[in-house]
Design a protein around this nucleic acid. Sequence first.
DNA 1: CTTGTCACTATGATTATCATAGTTACGATG
DNA 2: CATCGTAACTATGATAATCATAGTGACAAG
Lengths: 163, 163
Amino acid sequence: MPKRADLSDTFCPVGRSAELLGDRAVLLILRDLFFGRRRFEAIAANTGLGPQLVSARLKLMEREGVVERHAYQERPPRHEYRLTAKGKDLFDVLYAMRNWAERWAYAEGETGAGPAMRYVHRACGTDVGTSTVCPGCGEPLRYGDLKGEPSEALRAEQAARTG
Amino acid sequence: MPKRADLSDTFCPVGRSAELLGDRAVLLILRDLFFGRRRFEAIAANTGLGPQLVSARLKLMEREGVVERHAYQERPPRHEYRLTAKGKDLFDVLYAMRNWAERWAYAEGETGAGPAMRYVHRACGTDVGTSTVCPGCGEPLRYGDLKGEPSEALRAEQAARTG
DNA sequence: CTTGTCACTATGATTATCATAGTTACGATG
DNA sequence: CATCGTAACTATGATAATCATAGTGACAAG
């Protein structure tokens, strides 16, 4: 491809987000980071992306300020990647994607009974379904408010990928 | 590229969404459709994408059931593209992207005073800022509840692109 | 001193994307 | 009736991103 058009200076907010988020690899890496996977190899294994692509995208995300590279030990040198505040604030986007998929992207009963990924509001214990506001207590849902529990099908799939 | 890994059968909901939404062109086309642009040429002009790419993505989106091709006149044959219910339900994703960008992707005062795109809750007239719940009346915000008003900077940019 | 782990980098084949130009179907203008 | 204009595309060739696979550097353990 010739260099794709740059959207980083458009005044449209969706355009600016699309520069970073309009990329499969970035979305998958973000998903893993939100899920608590911080190490390079773990992300590469679970996403199924090649190490070159993971490396390139993590560098991009670091430049964009959504992740931070952090040494968790010196000898041998080992690093992990953490979401910054700007990165954590992408939770709403990923959660909206999840909600949409749960509503539209599965065949009847494909994940057994219930959603592929169940979320419970920590504060009140309510299963939030696919709402942006807790159906129990009415509070808007933010990053950290929810406890996710993967369905049996999803757990099995992840186990197969990560060995 | 070699054929990229297929995510349409993963059990992860973010993965399933990423298959469609992890693509700049799809996001830009969705943005335009939400904004009321339904004609092929209008979308191509405003997004800046080539007609080949717009054509390919609209076909993909039709296969995925998020848009419908609709003839609005017979002679000469003219078509427009409309969001289906499944497509309209992507509003939360685009809105979350917009909110994130408004909070993080602009330099101080870059769009003048206020956001690049202002949204007002139709039901109560409150400026919703970057919330998912109306700060005035507390209602969750859905597609159709909001009236968008582009900033002067954004209006000028769009006018320049669409001639 | 060989094997193993983590975090990458290098290489080559394949394919998506862009810019530009061309096509089809018609209506309107001169 | 020949040309111009518009909408909605399709065709072509150059360029660049992606994938699979293999390899590197730093260390630790056996």
